[in-house]
Design a protein around this nucleic acid. Sequence first.
DNA 1: GCAAGTATTCAGTGTTACTATGTACCAGTA
DNA 2: TACTGGTACATAGTAACACTGAATACTTGC
Lengths: 109, 109
Amino acid sequence: MGKQMTEMLKGTLEGIVLAILSGRSAYGYEITAWLRDQGFSDIAEGTVYALLVRIEKRGLVDVEKVPSEKGPPRKVYSLNAQGREYLEEFWRTWSFLAERIEQLRTGGR
Amino acid sequence: MGKQMTEMLKGTLEGIVLAILSGRSAYGYEITAWLRDQGFSDIAEGTVYALLVRIEKRGLVDVEKVPSEKGPPRKVYSLNAQGREYLEEFWRTWSFLAERIEQLRTGGR
DNA sequence: GCAAGTATTCAGTGTTACTATGTACCAGTA
DNA sequence: TACTGGTACATAGTAACACTGAATACTTGC
């Protein structure tokens, strides 16, 4: 992946994953596959798992272990109340940033 | 500044500064003041200067020392050809990311 | 002399995504 | 049995970047 994208994902990837989980619960492998499908072609699996551990430790998600037909048990994550609150704040931060940057693109200066 | 904003600025602040410089040349103190004016209330001065050193080392900007009426000489930065190219790529990367995130916000899933 | 505004620099810290690898479970097949 | 491949998670070490908290330097005005 481009170096620019790598740096830009810092701070946004977390929000992306939380946004995914706000729609429905999911497990790591699934999230990684979905991201790749969306064009984030080379997001490392390790990255997603590390992120999930992080947001779990912060108490933004609830976790449930679910047996899989093929392979080891899945850790299914779902957004809890605190996570939803955090996601709200993510959207506010994102909106602010996106607006300024969009202005810079069109307005120059 | 919020922790989320701090993390989100990684990778984007560089593009923001390059975009500013694409409009006209400027020096560090001026850029910091402008950013604060735009609502990036607590961007540390040190951050901007470190960034300027970085993009100078990468050869994205030209530098000229200009005496100031008040205070030490200014280092005035201006975007060169390589910088313009890099900025182009920044816009592409940003657009890609912004589109996916916007989809997530409106589409859910 | 001293404070305040202008202007730059730098050492040390925390957070985050990446690389690379390892573990574990199951199905199919030779 | 042994081997391959897909599914699923975990982790140690690295690089990049913004922040904190200084220090330095030049000028004007009290």
